[in-house]
Design a protein around this nucleic acid. Structure first.
Lengths: 128, 128
DNA sequence: GCTAACCAAGCTGCGCTACGCCCCGATTTA
DNA sequence: TAAATCGGGGCGTAGCGCAGCTTGGTTAGC
């Protein structure tokens, strides 16, 4: 009952101070991701491109923070590659979980024929 | 109506020749994964460890082929890291083990000979 | 004086890949 | 039937290339 995957109004949202803009240092502290990693991610994720102010400093907004946390989770917890994260986040709006039900194990001898079994037995014996 | 009969051999299943054992070269051809990659995966995925026959050659079974295709999809399509695939497959296996129903289709075979063959089969399988 | 920007170069280890030797099984020869 | 030959796998391991940071150097704003 505690958490339901950090959505729009989850209590976890509270941990970010209520301000409109964040500089890279703040973002780094809040998300526990080093500044240089944030700068690097920018080169890898086209959808993580904060604006810059007059003097060229990055200006992050709340949405960026959520995105950063999501990337962090996919990369470090779920262990996707950067490309995997990119793929996944780009197609995330497309809600299609693709539930592929695994087949059961039908490995063994099922068809009811003595001849069938004997053939398989020979096959096995050839292994030796 | 016809689904009752088609359950065991779904269309996808047909792509593998119907045999019990495969050598690494065959597996490589069937799954389109190089032999040396298969050997490498063995060092990374504890659940992909084919038996070896007397001469030390790997002996894969059908279940391994399915597993290999699954790994391939996670690695190359979804772009997980190897560790990510491992995590995912290890927790995925914690589903329902699915009770295996068996031995009720043997009516046509004379009970005596079937039992003999099964015993012999087990005996052989122990050799691996 | 701290923080940020940019760029280049360096580092680590993941995920193969190449290499050299060995063995199996089919065919030939005796 | 056995022995000999031989080519196409199969084996394990060392080496390699690049993904993903990480560091260092320099310049500039608050």
């Amino acid at each position: 009952m505690q958490k339901a995957r950090a959505s729009k109004n989850s209590p976890e949202q509270k941990k970010f101070p209520d301000k409109l803009f964040y500089k890279i240092g703040e973002v780094s502290r809040l998300t526990k991701v080093e500044s240089y990693v944030l700068r690097y991610w920018e080169t890898e994720f086209p959808f993580l491109r904060p604006r810059k102010n007059k003097s060229g400093q990055r200006v992050y907004i709340r949405k960026d923070l959520d995105l950063i946390l999501r990337i962090k989770e996919l990369l470090y917890d779920q262990k996707y590659t950067i490309e995997g994260v990119r793929l996944r986040l780009e197609t995330e709006g497309t809600r299609e979980p693709k539930e592929v039900q695994e087949d059961n194990e039908n490995a063994a001898i099922s068809p009811g024929s003595l001849q069938y079994i004997k053939n398989r037995l020979r096959e096995i014996l050839q292994q030796f």
